[in-house]
Each structure stands twice: as structure tokens, then as C-alpha cells.
Design a binder for these strands. Sequence first.
DNA 1: ATCTTGACTTGCC
DNA 2: CGGCAAGCCAAGA
Length: 126
Amino acid sequence: MRPPRTFRDRVRVIARAVPKGRVLTYGQVALLAGKPHGAREVGWICHAGGTGIPWHRVVNRAGGLASGYTGGRAGHRRALKRDGVRVGRNARVDLDVYGWWPDARSWKRWRLPAETVARLTRPDRG
DNA sequence: ATCTTGACTTGCC
DNA sequence: CGGCAAGCCAAGA
């Protein structure tokens, strides 16, 4: 795979890499795709969609569901449930349980910028 | 071209 | 805790 892909394409690749039963936040995706502050853009890209991509595995930092998801939050919730992800009463996913970071092999395969990799080595969460 | 919006995040009160 | 503002960047009007 060639490194010079568009941000959009990288977002798609990353979203597809999320294993069933796990979730990623917009911020994580943005970071992995090379734009630490591109979370909103990721949201836009998700909205634009793409066939065969598990967009429901992308949630916000609080584990919250996406309001603009096809079928609304209920639809998003259903999709997550299909994955075996338990959605809390307040429409939230427990990121400590379902949150996922790609392993070293994954991000090496994506040819991430050195800056991004540096951040990945210490993803100060919390 | 400028102004507003948005499936976001972080920081400050 | 919760609410508000700023930051970021692309798409629409």
C-alpha cells in the first residue's frame, strides 16, 4: 500500500481495521490518520460513509453514540449490539472495556508519520 | 470569495 | 461533576 493516500482513505483503512467487538474514538482515528486535531473531519468522513466499512465502531471520546448515524442513535446502538458491544443506559460504551488501539504491526503497516508513532507509544489516556 | 455547520476534543470556570 | 469557548479542518450555502 502506498503511503501517499488521502486522509479520507487512511480513515477508511483504519476504520476497517477495528476488530469486531471493539471501538475507536474519532480522535484516535484522526491521530492515526495523521491529523491529531482532525476529529471533526473524521466525523464528516464517517457521515460521507463508504460501503463495507464498520463506521459504528467509531464513537466519541465519551463513548457516546453518533446522532447523525443512519437510523439515529438507536441504529448505532443496534449495530454495536450486533458486535457484542454493550451500550450503557446513558447511550455510552465503556471505552476501558471496548476501546481499542492498534498493535505495533498494524500501524507500521499503515506507514504513519513519525510524529504520530511517537504519540502512539504513549497514548496518555486518562 | 466569506460565513456557517458539524457522527469532535480539550481546557477553563 | 456540568456548561461554555476555542481550536481544527472540510463541506455547503
